[in-house]
Nucleic acid binder design. Structure first.
Lengths: 211, 211
DNA sequence: AGAGCGGGTGATATAAAAATCACCCCTTTT
DNA sequence: AAAAGGGGTGATTTTTATATCACCCGCTCT
């Protein structure tokens, strides 16, 4: 099968890894092209072979799956990496995503779902286990996540004055600071709100109910 | 069909709504028990009938789907609400989740996936469209994830050791710091987690999946 | 009564974030 | 071309957060 998905498996638990490899090998459209029991081993092998997707455990002795992913990305490996772990920790999830993971599945996932997820990831999609999605919802609700970085007090003041039409010289006077500082604050606002003009900044701030 | 899922549909686009209702009605295990074309109408009808799940559009004239959801929750409606929208805006996603949505699907979703998702939501799970999951990844990567009440590295270590039963003297030795410092770290943990004892702190940390 | 342990107040050095400013470039207007 | 305003790079000061420690209080054992 020339168009089978070539999967590489990284997990320190031999029993789990072997079982997973056996399971995946039975599938028509998936081909296991290699396996490793540590991050160090994974890096060495992956750099030398061709593969389409990496299944990576997180908790491993030595390098963690996240550190391993970081090194692989640094070495130019662009393959999608699907984390397959027992960890529901927020920290692991956040770090895995930041390190460049394409998905985050728990090990209690049903084989069919895993198969389905592998195909979705190959298709360029991002996937999370339902439990992890729930975790994300919780993070959002507890405001640990926001749509934008939090603005500081001075930045909010700046936006208020900006929205009432003040220009740089007036802002400087009203806030008792130099014009240079005004501009710096505004630049920081631009970055946080992901905009590039004063008008946009005010519009977005109003929309986000920041002012 | 007594155990069919009773669905209520809210969407201002009549053509889409009618099509959706027709599609859902054909399914064995789903029964459409009502529909509305505005948020106001939805609130009035939903309060008067029995239903298991609400499919809600977001962009509607008058009340938005998010505002409607907010009012419903305020009125004590506990039904899971699945947002079904064309909006991929992060703001809409965040607001929908905060308002109490159980899922967020794009309107380009395949009918079978919609059916599958409705069942998952009824089973208490949280679901996102792949494109939306991608948005979540983006938010995490761009650090819009403020993680405000984040504990420091030392505090996390402390909790790990605490959870394995260490007492002050042992913590001090294991972390190579004085007992006084151990106590200070623990006090800071108390404040951040809003608790007042070690046991509570560990319990809350586990519940928040911080350790 | 005196160890032993959990919990609380205050203090200090260092690291990180916020606030401040000077100077430069580009466009528009005069 | 000079002036004025918006937008950008870099650097410094001030404030806040983190990590560290010393000392005190109150309870519970023995």
């Amino acid at each position: 099968m020339s168009n089978a998905i070539r999967v590489f498996v990284v997990d320190d638990h031999t029993l789990f890894r072997k079982g997973l490899v056996s399971l995946l090998s039975e599938l028509e459209d998936i081909q296991v092209v290699g396996e490793a029991s540590t991050g160090e081993e994974a890096i060495e092998i992956v750099m030398g072979i061709e593969s389409d997707l990496i299944l990576m455990d997180i908790n491993m002795p030595g390098m963690s799956g996240i550190e391993t992913l970081g090194v692989l990305r640094q070495q130019g490996v662009e393959n999608p990496v699907l984390m397959l772990t027992i960890s529901e920790h927020q920290e692991d999830l956040v770090e895995a995503i930041c390190a460049g993971a394409s998905g985050y599945l728990l090990k209690n996932t049903e084989p069919e779902i895993l198969q389905q997820t592998i195909k979705q990831v190959i298709a360029g999609k991002s996937v999370l286990s339902p439990e992890i999605t729930e975790q994300v919802f919780e993070m959002v609700r507890s405001r640990k996540i926001g749509v934008e970085k939090k603005l500081t007090e001075r930045e909010i003041q700046m936006l208020h004055l900006l929205s009432s039409g003040s220009k740089t010289s007036q802002l400087a006077e009203q806030m008792s600071i130099s014009e240079n500082t005004v501009k710096t604050h505004i630049r920081n606002i631009f970055e946080k709100l992901e905009v590039s003009s004063r008008a946009e900044a005010v519009a977005k701030a109003v929309r986000l109910k920041l002012i």
